[in-house]
Nucleic acid binder design. Structure first.
Lengths: 221, 221
DNA sequence: AGGCACACGTGAAGC
DNA sequence: TGCTTCACGTGTGCC
């Protein structure tokens, strides 16, 4: 565009101008100004690029196995990672909150694909002193290993979460058998829930013990 | 560079070439090839830009309040959000994992700044049947409300997490009083830990009950 | 080659 | 108005 000028802004070790060729005495000054503006512009743009790339690189540090990855693929990876993190975070917090108004029984199968089969089951209801022993009796008849058990209470409500694995003679890729397990666990927990909530209807004095499971456990009564 | 050719690749509604000016019969074909290559190149580059920008836009959808934000600032926001998510996620999972080898007592004050004062305390040790009643007795002497209680077991280990709030007559901005509370809670839990672990040393048969707290609770012994 | 990904400088549009 | 951000086409190096 500009007549008889070749401005070379080197990216690495700039020797800025190559051929500040004389063009005319008076038009030269305005051209120099325009050139300076152009140089400022390209430098600013370079700083912008550097800013973006710096952030991109710190993202590489945050997401594993992206050290030499494409920009676009890196961003895609960031997206999936972010979604995953959000999901697990809300899942964790979901696991920590206790629904106040509704009793619930949930059973979820986790077919890992590697042949193992696990189950997480949860029961949430008002606290009742018989609850734990009822639960124990109900669960020990099931053909499942208890891997992990959690009890949490908040304001008179109690939530029990269990993680089971099936005995290894149970075929994990037998979808039907797995469904049977899910159903029996669900049924066991539901019957526990029915039993304790029915008992609570008649033994109202127990409700005064609802502040914490620790207030009214088995030994002192 | 190219002599007497002006290739215009319009970004919006491309009428691709403006002036396929005759230049010569034989050099024309090579020039046309070069031009086609150039066009492919710019189109590929455009697709790349679109890929990146699409990912950037989905990131905008993932991070709040970034709808009209700068690319660089958006990425910065993504970074902070991601760090935050990672932190809370590991914090949650930290709360759910149970150290296998070391017993521990932890007490952490949470001064909210709004005048309320809360405490989370945790005790992690081998399961012992007396643990729960010991805990109950130890905690009920403390001038604290139990807001939330969790018990989780995994492989014979048990972790108890409690959230307390202080009675409202305790001045929350009195750092000294808060520290006293922290200390007394810590001391109570430590004494419980000492008691049950000392008992476990002598009553080794109890160790067979360690598979789950549900195996050996209070009612049947 | 020939596709791919990157950095660059530049024109245009928004405050 | 200048300053910033964006999209674009291009040059270049790397499989």
């Amino acid at each position: 565009m500009s007549a008889s000028q070749s401005l070379v802004l080197d990216g690495e070790r700039s020797e800025i101008v190559k051929g500040p060729v004389r063009v005319g005495k008076r038009s030269g000054v305005s051209e120099e100004k325009a050139m300076a503006a152009l140089k400022d512009h390209s430098e600013a743009e370079r700083r912008r690029r550097e800013r973006i790339n710096a952030h991109l690189n710190t993202l590489r540090g945050l997401v594993p196995c992206t050290e030499k990855m494409d920009k676009a693929t890196l961003l895609a990876e960031v997206i999936t990672q972010m979604k995953q993190l959000k999901k697990t975070a809300t899942e964790y917090s979901k696991g920590l909150t206790i629904p106040m108004d509704d009793d619930e029984v949930k059973v979820e199968p986790h077919n890992e694909g590697d042949g193992t089969f696990s189950l997480t089951a949860s029961l949430c209801c008002d606290y009742s002193p018989q609850l734990i022993s009822e639960l124990r009796q109900a669960l020990k008849t099931l053909p499942l290993n208890i891997v992990k058990a959690e009890i949490s209470t908040l304001g008179g409500r109690v939530k029990n979460v269990f993680v089971f694995t099936s005995y290894k003679d149970t075929n994990s890729d037998n979808a039907e058998a797995c469904q049977v397990l899910v159903n029996s666990v669900h049924q066991s927990l539901t019957s526990v829930l029915d039993k304790v909530s029915a008992a609570a209807d008649y033994t109202l004095p127990n409700k005064r013990r609802r502040i914490s499971f620790i207030d009214s456990s088995s030994s002192s009564s």
